[in-house]
Every structure is written in structure tokens, then in C-alpha cells.
Write a protein that binds this DNA or RNA. Structure first.
Length: 944
RNA sequence: GCGGACGUGGCGGAAUCUGGCAGACGCGCUGGGUUUAGGUCCCAGUACCCACCAGGGUGUGGGGGUUCGAAUCCCCCCGUCCGCACCA
């Protein structure tokens, strides 16, 4: 392509070759000048670029440095933030804008396992490649501030934050995290008593440690992992097939409990929920977070067993959001994993047990054992839609009514939600209704349904309570209030807020992650002191998978580094050297991405994760009620819940402990859309390379002469439809690519990639170029006389529109307005007036920075400063008001003509002018006007 | 099932927030110019239907409503996409 400089292409046309030349020249110059380095009020900023303007912190979600490189879909959000940042800089803002890499993760470890090469080598090569690809786009990042989560200097502070969390507990009275040292002080001074009537002084070392450890924000608990002995590793849920085997190698996988680090995010559930209201985020993301937290108000109700057997009476708690339906309870269900199932299960079927309740087993123990074994094999998704269960041979009594009801084990009740036990109310809950039908259980309605409500369905709406003793006649809200009061009086129940959110499992049985800075002594976990950070990953020389016996214990890769596992250290300063065993799990990939925005602020600080003055400058928001945080955060919706929730959680902990100044990490969030691409399948259903397909939608598409079917999907290797930025640079240049991606549609919308359309953006730039530079001689074409009045007004209307579009990140319409203005210039035979060219170049600068910088220097001479520092044009308000306006005239709702009026014409004059217009007069036809309206400057409406 | 977003020419989209000329801008397509030709580039046209024109009719997923006036606001339905999914 580049070699095809045909004889008839003018030598100074804006072609891909010229663009490449311009782009590399200005990129080198900008780098040499430190053009995009942002000064700080303190710390390492360079004073010569200091700016008095207001601060703005703009950030993209940083990428994982994948080995396969970029396609044109990846940088969409980066281009958008870059355009916005350049615009705000030209408006006088001091903008912080950089890019880092989320570089721990599975693919690098997988690559290491296959090649034997250390993941750091591969990771750093990928980062270098990605930096190169992004730099080629001309993104105005402060490169000095870039970090990778795998940098030892970075993960040192990730570990430091872990220790802060470990050394904190959540004080429910204060509603915030406090240092564990304060908790211990309170125990020691007697201001706080251990639970269960024990005394701190009487507790041994182990009991004290357990008491404190159980309240930490980071704590150890047993949680099930997917242990694959054949691979000698633990697998993520995504790596396990539906059949419960390993994706790689199809080996057996076992669920095994393993000691895991948990983060007590549930303590923050209410704050995470409430503060959502204060964020400028898409409603969809807020809704997803609300649903994920899943707060529901209800009651905890205790049911006592009705057994006549000797021995202790058992009590089972259920959670319900409908305590008002208590009197409709006709059975109880426990999840198969419920820990009390064994003690409740009877030895023999009570007399008269229906056959359908026994699953054909000889005893309840047999039936329950078979049922539980089957449930354990099934993944949650496979638990069938039809309701099944078995009777455990034991009954419980419904509070107040004292009616005995049977207890079942059924897999439609989940151990992970509420108490893992529910009261079955088939009258008011459709799931319970289906179970009751299957097992012939009675149905008692406790809310009077409306007459049209079908008999066979549960009724979940509001209405007067019935069959409910003292609740009868009350509506749902009143019934709930009264039953809660009575339950509390009777000591058999209490109000309860339940959450779907669960504590965050923070352990990964992986090598390529941050080591957790914890060691264990005989009593439990001990934090490494801060001065022992960073705790560096040890070398792992043996990458080969090792097959282990079926009954082996799960073991993280770090367990293989035998000289690292056991450590002798003096941790308490004074006790002398003691032996400890290291934590072998590493942190999840989320850890590094939970706080990287803070490190951008002060990336080389060795004394703290961020200097407090610097943090306040960039993160504090002086507005009353403001939450602080990054001013604009742009990234994909796939992080709507986990990343954004975990980061908010960490930020709130850091806030509680006084390390950051605001409540929230990200004040404003925008989800950029995805670039989709057409993919083509042949008759066998196999994808063929999209760039080899010929034909059109009308004629049909073919590959190698055979017909193929088109579909729209994610751009990527699997659909063979990737288009790389490098292809676009070669054919059009980076500026054209930037402009096309911004022109395709609104930033938050998905859109299909169409390579053939890219030329449109190049043509626009070529026309702009041609209006300023002579394609034959390379000389400037601009004329010195100023624009005429009409052009001047068009120019200022354009400035006004482009400015507000840029502010609102509506780059597609900003480009349309600039194109329109340029088309207007093109129609005038002479070159652009110098004054107009100057303004157009400045307006284009955020979108196509190299192109604008080049024209700026051609226009103003080599001594001119950078266009990136020129002011963004501002419209003259006097030129925005036209003295005459053309106004459409509607007769009975149809536009029948237009009249030109003075801008300040009154209604009477406007209507008179409208009636004078022949076509309007013809449609009025001399009839009487029933109504006449003039919306100044917009519309004249006549009704006859 | 629950929740959210969205539905406009052959295509991407504009106008939706704040009701007031539907289709800006670009792709594609049609015709013309430049060129030996193709490509590039330039000019004109391009929602659909009727009409030589002037002009007229229809039209923003479907139906209803509010209004002088609805793509825009309200209600119902249909469809597409996304999230959650036996959450008690």
C-alpha cells in the first residue's frame, strides 16, 4: 500500500505515509519535551509544566498484558479518555492521566508451565509490546507514573494494605474499621468483655488469639476448593467442566476444604449499598451492585423439634422475608449441606409416613444419605428445576399454633443463603407450592387473594391476613410488624437483615500472584512486620505438573519451595528467633487492581503508598456531600460488580483507617461499549478468516467460492475476525483510526466494526488538510482576510456545539459538526481564512493530535508552542444570536412553508408573515384560525 | 421468572435530557467529472410512495393516551441485548 504512491497522487496529500511520518515525528518530540507529564503539588512533579488550573484525574481500567496483542476494539475507551483529557487540558485543567498493567494472572502462569520460562519474563515482554502499541496511538499518558501490579515496588504496598486490613476489625457500634490494637486495649482494660461470660484475664494465649482473629477484617476459614490431584493443582470454577472434571486433561476434580483467607466485605454491605446513591455511575451498574449485595429485611424464626424421643430438643432457625405468613407453614426444608441434618435424621420412619417421602429407602438415614450424596455431585446449576426432597423422619412445631410439621431435606434450599433452612409456606410462595404439590403437603392461605387469583398458584401480593390467629384482618405491613413484636416477646424470633453478598475468598492456590505477608505459629496467623515488606515471590524452578494420589491434600505451588516454606525470624522483637511456617496461597488478581489509582498519584514513594498531601490534592472533592475519588473512570461493564465492589471496599477500609481522604474511589464511571465485528461460518459451522471473505449482504458472502453465513460477535481470535491497530496505521494512520473510533457512535454503545468505513474519516481529514495546505506545493493555502459575517457566525455556532459535545464526551456529534464546518469551507473556492484555520485546528487537536500539531506548526511557524497548550476555542455569545431566523409554519400539524423573520419578531407579526406565504395561505384556505402559536425561533403553528 | 437497557433509511448513527422542520455526519449505492483503464480524488443525488415540476401522501417496532404539536412524555403489547437466577 505504502509503496503505491501513484504519479497522479499529489505529493503533499494527507496520505497514510504522510500521517505515519507526522505521527512518529511528533510522538518523539512530545516524549523529549515531557509534554504529558503532570505536576503535583508535592512529590516528583516537574515544575516547568506546573499549572494553576483545577485538577482532574481521569483513568481507564488498566489492561491485562495479553500475549496476543491488541485489536482495534481494545483502545476504544483509551482513545475516548485521551480526547477528553486533551480537551480539558486545553481548557486549563491540570489533568492526571496515565496507564498501568494488571499483570499478575493465570495466562502468564500457564505459559510458564508450558515453556518452563519464568512468568516475569513473558509478562514484561508483553507489557513492552503493549506499551509500544498504545504509544503508537498517541495517547497523552504521563509515562513516568505507569505501574505494573507485578512490580516489587508496587506489590510491596499491596501487601502493606493487606496487613492494614488484617490488623483491623469492624466495630459495629462505630460502623467502621478500627485497628485491632484498640480492640485488644479494650479487652485488657476491661472496657470490653469477651462473649460467653468469659474474662480476658482468664483466657490463655490461644483463646485470646482466636477471639481477636475471629474479628479481623481478614481472617482464615475453611472453604471448598477444586482440587485436581492428577494436575497437582487447584482449579478455578471456570476450569472445571460441567461433568466435574478438569478442562485441561479431563482429570478427576474433588471438592476439598482448604484454609482460605477471607475478607469481611459483608461488614461493609450497608455502606457499600448506601453510598451508591452518591456516585455518578450508570444506573445499570448501580443496580447490579445493589442486586449483588442483595439486602433483604425479614426475620429469624426458631422452630423447636416435636420429637417425643428422649434427648435434647433441637432448635432450627429459618430466615424469612414473610414472617407474616408463619401460620401458613406446613413443612420445613433444610439444605442438603445443612450441618444439623444428621442430628435431626431419625433412625426409622414414623408410622404412617407416605411412600413418596421416603424415596424408597428403608430408613430416614439411608434416604438422607443417598439424597445428600446425589446433591453433592451436582453443581448448583444442575440442581433440577423440579422439586425433590426426602423426609428426615422428624417434625418441628410452628410457633404460636404449635402445629407439628414435617422436616425435609431438599436441594431447592441453598446452604449459602440465609440459614440454609426455610419454612415451607405453599400458600404464599410458588416454590413451596410446587414442593407441596409433589409431596402431598397441605396448603394454607394466610393472605386473602383477590377473587380472580387462580387457586392453584401461590399468592405473593398484599391483602388481609387470614387463618393467622391474631394477625387476621391486618395487611402485610401491619402483620409483619405485629408478628415480629410477638416473636420477640416469646423469644422465638427477631428482625433480621440478610445479604446475598458473602465474604470475599482472598486466597488463590497459584504462584503468579502477590505472596500473602503472613506466617503461622502454633496458635495461628502472625503478620509480618512492615519492615519485612516486600515479601518477594521466591523462584520456582520446577514448573512441571506433578500427579498426586487421589487422597492427597491440596497444595499451592509455593509449597514446593521447601527452603522458603519454613522460616526462622524474630517477629515480636524480643522473643528471639522462632520458627514459623509461611502462608502458601497468593492473592487474587483483584488485589492489585483494588488500589492502583492511588499509586498513580505517587508511584515512586518509598515511605508510604501515597503522600497524604498528594492524595488530598488529586482525590478530595471540595463540594459539600462529595465522596472524592477519581473524577472519571472508564472501562467495560464486565467489571460492574467484582472489581468495582472490591475496590470500593478497600477504599472504605483505608478511609476508616485514615489513609485516604474520601469515601469512594471512583466518583464518576462510564462503561464504554464494545466493538463487535462480523464473523463468517462455512457450511460445517467452522469460522473462516473474516478478511478473506468476499461479497455483500445482497449478493451473499463467499469464502474460497463457497457460501458462508455472517454473524456479529466479539472481535477476537476465536471468531477469526480481528482487525489490528497496526493494519489501520499502515492503511490510514493513527489519527484516522482515532477519529473513526470516536465517530462510530456514542461512547457507551456497542457498535460493529467496518473497515471499509474508516476511509470516510480519512477523507474528512484530507479535506481539512486541503483547505489549509496546497496538495501540489505543500505551501499554506490560508488567506489573510478575515471570514465574512456568515462564515463567522457558522464558525461560532460550531465552536459552541463542539465545546459542549466535548464536555459531554459526545465525540461522534462533535466530529459531525466539525465536518459540516469543513464542508462549508470546502465549498468556498479559496483557502480557509487564517483565523478560521487556527480555530479549526485547535478544535481538532484533542481528536487528532498529531495532525493538529503538524498543521498548527505549519500555520504559526516552527517557533509556535504546542497546540496541546493552546486554549480550546470559546464562542463569542454575540455571534450566536442570529438577527434573522427561518421558521417553519405548521397548518394542522403539517409543515406547509417557511418564513424568514427578525429574531425578535413577536407572535402577531410572525403569524401575519406566515399567512402571507402562498402555500400556507392555500392550506388555510381563508378559513378561520382556531388557534395560532409562535414559539420564537422554532415554529409557527396555525390550527383551522 | 426477576431486574436493567434498547428498538429511527441498505448500514453506523443524529434529533430523545429540555415535546416544535425526523434522518445531521459518515459508509454504501446511483449519476457525472478527472484518469488510457481500474483505484484514488472531486461534484450532485439518495427514507418510502405518487408526480415532469410545483407539490402531495406515508413514515421513528405495534396499539392506545396526553397535547395545538410526540421519535421524544404516559400506559399496554411485541422484539433484541445484558445482568441475576430456586436468594426463602
Amino acid at each position: 500500500m505504502s509503496a503505491r504512491l501513484e504519479a497522479d497522487t499529489p505529493p503533499h496529500r494527507y496520505t497514510a505515509d504522510l500521517a505515519a511520518h507526522i505521527e512518529s515525528r511528533w510522538q518523539a518530540r512530545w516524549d523529549a519535551d515531557g509534554r504529558y507529564e503532570t505536576p503535583d503539588p508535592a512529590g516528583s512533579g516537574s515544575p516547568e509544566h506546573s499549572s494553576a488550573g483545577p485538577k482532574l484525574f481521569v483513568m481507564d481500567m488498566f489492561p491485562y498484558p495479553s500475549g496476543s496483542g491488541l485489536h482495534v476494539g481494545h483502545p476504544l475507551g483509551y482513545i475516548a479518555t485521551d480526547v477528553y483529557v486533551r480537551f480539558k487540558r486545553m481548557c486549563g485543567f491540570n489533568v492526571l492521566y496515565t496507564m498501568g498493567f494488571d499483570a499478575f494472572g493465570l495466562p502468564a502462569e500457564e505459559h510458564a508451565r508450558q515453556t518452563g520460562q519464568h512468568p516475569r519474563i513473558n509478562t514484561e515482554a508483553n507489557i513492552d509490546n503493549m506499551r509500544r502499541q498504545l504509544a503508537r496511538l498517541g495517547l497523552g499518558h504521563d509515562k513516568r507514573r505507569s505501574i505494573a501490579t507485578t512490580d516489587v515496588d508496587y506489590y510491596r504496598w499491596t501487601q502493606w494494605i493487606f496487613l492494614q486490613i488484617f490488623n483491623s476489625w469492624f466495630d459495629p457500634d462505630a460502623g467502621r474499621a478500627r485497628p485491632v490494637s484498640e480492640l485488644i486495649d479494650e479487652y485488657e482494660s476491661g472496657r470490653r468483655q469477651p462473649p460467653g461470660g468469659r474474662r480476658w484475664e482468664d483466657l490463655g494465649e490461644r483463646a485470646r488469639r482466636e477471639l481477636v482473629d475471629s474479628q479481623r477484617l481478614a481472617y482464615v476459614a475453611d472453604a471448598p476448593v477444586n482440587w485436581c490431584p492428577a494436575l497437582g493443582t487447584v482449579l478455578a470454577n471456570e476450569e472445571v467442566t460441567n461433568e466435574g472434571r478438569s478442562e485441561r486433561g479431563n482429570h478427576e476434580v474433588f471438592k476439598r476444604p482448604l484454609k482460605q483467607w477471607m475478607m469481611r466485605i459483608t461488614a461493609y454491605a450497608d455502606r457499600l449499598l448506601e453510598d451508591l446513591d452518591r456516585l455518578d455511575w450508570p444506573d445499570s451498574v448501580k443496580t447490579m451492585q445493589r442486586n449483588w449485595i442483595g439486602r433483604s429485611e425479614g426475620a429469624l424464626i426458631s422452630f423447636k423439634t416435636a420429637t417425643t424421643r428422649p434427648g435434647p430438643q433441637h432448635v432450627i432457625d429459618v430466615f424469612t422475608t414473610r414472617p407474616d405468613t408463619l401460620f401458613g407453614t406446613t413443612y420445613m426444608v433444610l439444605a442438603p449441606e445443612h450441618p444439623r441434618v444428621d442430628e435431626l435424621t431419625a433412625d426409622a420412619w414414623p408410622a404412617g409416613t407416605p411412600g413418596s417421602w421416603t424415596a424408597g429407602a428403608a430408613t430416614p438415614r439411608d434416604a438422607v444419605a443417598v439424597y445428600r450424596a446425589r446433591a453433592a455431585e451436582l453443581s448448583d446449576a444442575d440442581r433440577s428445576d423440579s422439586k425433590t426432597g426426602v423426609y428426615v423422619g422428624c417434625d418441628v412445631r410452628v410457633p404460636f399454633s404449635d402445629a407439628p410439621v414435617p422436616v425435609f431435606v431438599a436441594d431447592y434450599v441453598l446452604m449459602g443463603y440465609g440459614t440454609g433452612a426455610v419454612m415451607g409456606v405453599p400458600g404464599e410462595d410458588q416454590r413451596d407450592r410446587e414442593f407441596a404439590e409433589a409431596y402431598g403437603l397441605p396448603v394454607i392461605r394466610t393472605v386473602q387473594p383477590p377473587p380472580e387469583h387462580p387457586d392453584e398458584l401461590a399468592y405473593t401480593g398484599d391483602g388481609p391476613s387470614i387463618n393467622s390467629a391474631f394477625l387476621d384482618g391486618l395487611d402485610m405491613a401491619a402483620s409483619k410488624a405485629l408478628i415480629l413484636e410477638r416473636l420477640q416477646e416469646a423469644g422465638t424470633g427477631s428482625p433480621k437483615v440478610n445479604y446475598r453478598l458473602r465474604d470475599w475468598n482472598f486466597s488463590r492456590q497459584r504462584y503468579w500472584g502477590e505472596p500473602i505477608p503472613i506466617v503461622f505459629d502454633e496458635h495461628g496467623p502472625v503478620a509480618l512486620p512492615e519492615d519485612m515488606l516486600p515479601l518477594e515471590l521466591p523462584e520456582l524452578t520446577d514448573w512441571a505438573p506433578r500427579a498426586l494420589a487421589r487422597d492427597s491434600e491440596p497444595e499451592p505451588p509455593l509449597g514446593r519451595v521447601t527452603d522458603w516454606v519454613d522460616v526462622e525470624a524474630d517477629l515480636s522483637g524480643g522473643d528471639g528467633l522462632r520458627r514459623y511456617r509461611r502462608e502458601l496461597n497468593t492473592m487474587p488478581q483483584w488485589a492489585g487492581s483494588c488500589w492502583y489509582y492511588l499509586r498513580y498519584l505517587d508511584p515512586r514513594n518509598d515511605d508510604s503508598l501515597v503522600d497524604p498531601d498528594v492524595e488530598r490534592y488529586w482525590m478530595a472533592d471540595p463540594e459539600p456531600g462529595a465522596v472524592g475519588g477519581v473524577d472519571l473512570y472508564v472501562g467495560g461493564v464486565e467489571h460492574a460488580v467484582l472489581h468495582l465492589l472490591y475496590a470500593r471496599f478497600w477504599h472504605k477500609v483505608l478511609y476508616d483507617l485514615g489513609h485516604v481522604s474520601g469515601l469512594e474511589p471512583f466518583k464518576r464511571l462510564i462503561n464504554q461499549g464494545y466493538i463487535q465485528a462480523y464473523a463468517f461460518k462455512d457450511a460445517r459451522g467452522v469460522y473462516v478468516p473474516a478478511d478473506e471473505v468476499e461479497g455483500t449482504l445482497q449478493e451473499g458472502f463467499t469464502h474460497d467460492g463457497r457460501p458462508v453465513a455472517r454473524e456479529l460477535g466479539k472481535m477476537g481470535k476465536s471468531l477469526k475476525n480481528s482487525v489490528t491497530p497496526d493494519d489501520m496505521y499502515a492503511s490510514y494512520g493513527a489519527d484516522t483510526l482515532r477519529m473513526y473510533e470516536m465517530f462510530m457512535g456514542p461512547i457507551d454503545q456497542d457498535r460493529p466494526w467496518e473497515t471499509r468505513s474508516v476511509v470516510g474519516s480519512q477523507r474528512v481529514l484530507q479535506r481539512v488538510w486541503r483547505n489549509i495546505v496546497d496538495e501540489e506545493t505543500g505551501e499554506l493555502r490560508v488567506v489573510d482576510e478575515g471570514p465574512d459575517d456568515e462564515l463567522l457566525r457558522v464558525l461560532h455556532r460550531t465552536i459552541d456545539g463542539v465545546r459542549s459535545d466535548m464536555e459531554g464526551m459526545r465525540f461522534n456529534t462533535a466530529i459531525a459538526k466539525l465536518t459540516e464546518l469543513n464542508n462549508d469551507l470546502t465549498k468556498r473556492a479559496s483557502g480557509a481564512p487564517r483565523e478560521v484555520a487556527d480555530v479549526v485546528i485547535r478544535m481538532l487537536a484533542p481528536l487528532v493530535p498529531h495532525f493538529a500539531e503538524e498543521l498548527w506548526h505549519r500555520l504559526h511557524g516552527s517557533g509556535a508552542g504546542s497546540v496541546t497548550q493552546a486554549g480550546f476555542p470559546a464562542a463569542d455569545p454575540a455571534l450566536l444570536v442570529a438577527d434573522t431566523v427561518e421558521v417553519p409554519v405548521q397548518v394542522n400539524g403539517k409543515v406547509r412553508g417557511r418564513v424568514t423573520l427578525a429574531a425578535d419578531a413577536d407572535a402577531e407579526f410572525a403569524v401575519a408573515a406566515a399567512l402571507a406565504e402562498p402555500n400556507v395561505a392555500a392550506h388555510v384556505g381563508g378559513r378561520e384560525l382556531r388557534k395560532q402559536l409562535y414559539v420564537p425561533g422554532r415554529m409557527i403553528t396555525l390550527v383551522v
